[in-house]
Amino acid sequence: MVGHSERFGPGVPKELDRYLIPSEQIVFMLRRHWVVLAEPTATGVLGLIILAWVSNQTSGLFVQILTVLWLLLLSRLLLKAWEWYDELFIATDRRLMLVHGIVTRQVDIMPMSKVTDMRYDRTVTGQILGYGKFVMESAGQDQALSTINYIPDSDLHYQQISQIIFAPSERKLTQKATAPGSRVPISEPEQAWWRRKN
């Protein structure tokens, strides 16, 4: 994700120009909550502590094996951090998108018009740390994007998505009422019965 979008402005990666159409408006764009990196980070730190303790007690082949194992844990942490940074969850006025993958780039899409219901879950940990999970239900077949977990500021983003999904008819009515030339001209026939003179 090098560079910024010319179409959507600073802060929006240039890559999104390939996936978004010009008339779409970005409602929000975010990365998953940092808690997804907690387990790999804790594992890496714990591995380093064990390696340091064993190195003080002994030396030789066992320490070398532990060093290799810790380097694998460190590589895993770096890979998870790269995946986290490279993954974007985007909501536009037309669809939800999850852009992810390092080697193979994938774009999961759920059109807003297909969402029939939306569930919002927050575990105890999620309430403490400030993240939640969205579960979308759609009419028809299973969609590529149905569950999005570890959403930061989930209360705010839930309200933003709900406003798009569940209030489109109100927006359409408002747009029609305010649109110029929205009235349909009515013409009456000249020979209508109420115009005839006896």
Rank of each mutant, 00 (worst) to 15 (best):
V2L: 10
S5A: 04
V12I: 14
P13S: 06
K14T: 03
D17V: 02
R18I: 08
I21P: 00
S23V: 08
S23K: 10
Q25N: 13
I26S: 01
I26C: 01
F28E: 00
R32F: 03
H33L: 01
V36A: 03
E39G: 01
T43L: 05
G44E: 03
V45C: 02
G47R: 02
G47F: 02
I50E: 09
V54M: 09
V54A: 11
V54H: 05
S55I: 00
S55V: 07
T58H: 14
S59V: 11
G60Q: 11
L61H: 10
Q64R: 08
I65N: 03
I65L: 14
T67D: 02
L71C: 13
L72H: 13
L72C: 15
L73F: 10
L74I: 05
L74R: 04
S75L: 15
S75D: 09
E83W: 04
Y85H: 13
D86P: 05
E87Y: 05
I90F: 06
I90D: 00
R95G: 00
L96W: 05
V99L: 05
V99M: 01
V99N: 08
Q106I: 13
V107H: 07
M110N: 15
M112W: 09
S113L: 10
V115Y: 08
D117H: 14
D117G: 15
D117Y: 10
M118K: 14
M118I: 12
R119L: 13
Y120E: 12
Y120P: 00
V124M: 14
Q127V: 10
I128S: 07
Y131P: 07
M136K: 08
G140P: 10
Q141G: 02
Q141R: 02
D142L: 06
Q143D: 05
A144F: 11
L145T: 11
T147L: 05
N149A: 15
I151T: 06
I151N: 00
D153T: 07
D153M: 06
D155K: 11
L156H: 13
I161F: 02
S162M: 15
P168Q: 11
P168Y: 06
K172Q: 14
L173S: 14
A177Q: 06
A179Q: 09
P180T: 09
G181T: 09
S182F: 05
S182L: 04
P185S: 07
S187M: 12
P189K: 08
E190G: 14
E190K: 13
R195P: 11
R196H: 09
